[in-house]
């Protein structure tokens, strides 16, 4: 018995066209499985908690009042894939502003009725040496960057002070 007969059937039973279609369906099914079970970055790693601190300077009292522990942080100007994390601590200190003085110097001088605010935020993401910290796998964040962020209730400009991995893996 030949492998393929004159009608294109394998062992005289199965059409070669049917076999090709079966292979195509199997590839589709495999693609569906990979799409639903693998991380979007294509790297099979578990997300970790990332804790970072951002600072805003010279803010009025109403900005302090508009922030609360538990608020979620967002960036409307960039792709974030959701919340960038939850505010877990708010530190408020007397406000200052970098300014030029008449003696030719530049100094961080006090501002009456203003506050410097440091937010400690905990999000989820990945870290690798090539890309650094990637919140929600897609949002790059590093110390010394400046961002316009918002919660549901407030909008503000911050400088990023530091970013670090938490010890435990995110759920």
């Amino acid at each position: 018995m030949t492998i393929m007969d004159r009608n294109g059937r394998l062992f005289g039973k199965i059409s070669i066209i049917d076999v090709i279609v079966v292979l195509a369906v199997v590839v589709l099914a495999a693609a569906l499985y990979v799409k639903t079970h693998q991380p979007e970055t294509g790297v099979n790693v578990t997300e970790q908690y990332i804790t970072y601190q951002v600072k805003m300077t010279n803010q009025p009292q109403y900005v302090v009042d508009a922030l609360a522990v538990g608020d979620q942080l967002y960036d409307k100007e960039r792709s974030t894939n959701g919340s960038l994390g939850e505010i877990i601590q708010i530190d408020v200190e007397p406000g200052t502003q970098l300014t030029s003085l008449m003696d030719g110097t530049i100094a961080d001088v006090p501002c009456e009725d203003r506050y410097n605010i440091v937010l400690t935020v905990r999000g989820k993401g990945l870290y690798n040496e090539k890309d650094g910290y990637m919140l929600n796998r897609i949002y790059a964040l590093g110390a010394n960057s400046s961002r316009n962020l918002n919660t549901k209730y407030a909008w503000f400009t911050v400088g990023v002070l530091n970013v670090a991995l938490d010890d435990q893996a995110a759920q």
Partner: peptide, 19 residues
């Protein structure tokens, strides 16, 4: 209208403190 991350007045005006 309110969602988890915004308050929209008149269907499109994004209301936030500081803005």
């Amino acid at each position: 209208t309110q969602t988890d991350d915004s308050i929209l007045v008149d269907g499109g005006y994004d209301l936030r403190v500081g803005q």
